[in-house]
């Protein structure tokens, strides 16, 4: 076992940041940055796609519905390949591996998030939108002030599910040679040769810690948000 501790001692910095500062940033840091950026970009895009999915205009609704069906019907690996091989040939811009992976993740997750958000919006009683509109609020102000705050709260568990998936999906960057934490780990394993189970156990624990942490944070947030609703105590009824 002391041999394994030695490996940790040798490689922990490589595991955390890759070749940085002598080369490009990689490892766990890159995974965290990639996952965070993907979440931050996919959520607003998901909201936009969800609005398009419930739009009364076919010209808006149909292309987005097609995108959602295509993404839902293909593995992420395919989307990564498209972003890697197909996208540069269409746009003429060669993107680096990080951007390629980010595009694939954002498109893929935004499509899934759109469906979660659509369900959250449509699952709210119709009367909420109607009463907001009857006060004179326009469609988008009513959405922003009345519908979305409630819908997002109801969606929180599903959203966290998707966010956890996103963290794990970053590992597919391995396929296109992105130096995220899985890629770095496999390189360490190739160099060390003798401790594969232990090395990949550390990788597994790393992913687990991130996902579990996010899950706990979401649970805390959920309770904090719902506490407000019951904070006002039942007082005596007076007429």
């Amino acid at each position: 076992m002391s041999g394994f501790l030695e490996i940790i001692d040798t490689y922990w910095l490589y595991f955390l940041v890759g070749q940085y500062p002598y080369g490009p940033l990689g490892g766990l840091a890159l995974t965290v940055i990639l996952a965070s950026l993907a979440l931050v970009l996919a959520l607003p895009l998901g909201v936009v796609l969800a609005f398009a999915r419930i739009s009364p205009w076919r010209a808006v609704r149909w292309p987005v519905s097609a995108l959602v069906f295509v993404v839902r019907g293909t593995p992420l690996l395919m989307v990564v390949f498209w972003a890697y091989f197909f996208l540069p040939s269409v746009t003429g811009v060669k993107t680096d591996q990080f951007t390629t992976m980010l595009i694939a993740l954002v498109v893929f997750d935004a499509a899934y998030l759109a469906e979660i958000i659509r369900a959250g919006i449509q699952g709210l009683p119709k009367g909420q939108m109607e009463s907001a509109r009857s006060l004179g609020l326009g469609y988008f102000p009513a959405m922003r002030l009345v519908v979305l705050p409630q819908a997002l709260r109801n969606m929180l568990p599903s959203l966290v599910n998707q966010f956890v998936s996103t963290i794990k999906e970053t590992s597919l960057g391995y396929i296109i040679g992105l130096a995220e934490v899985s890629f770095i780990t496999s390189q360490i394993n190739t160099q060390v040769m003798v401790w594969p189970a232990q090395i990949y156990l550390v990788l597994g624990l790393t992913y687990f810690t991130m996902c579990f942490g996010l899950g706990r944070f979401a649970y805390w947030l959920e309770r904090r948000l719902s506490r407000r609703a019951i904070a006002a105590p039942l007082q005596e009824v007076s007429a």
């Binding site: 109607e130 009463s131 009857s134 705050p149 409630q150 709260r153």
Partner: peptide, 12 residues
């Protein structure tokens, strides 16, 4: 002003 059967207050 419009008042609904189901009140439709904003619960949040």
């Amino acid at each position: 002003g419009f008042v609904f059967q189901q009140f439709n207050l904003f619960p949040h």
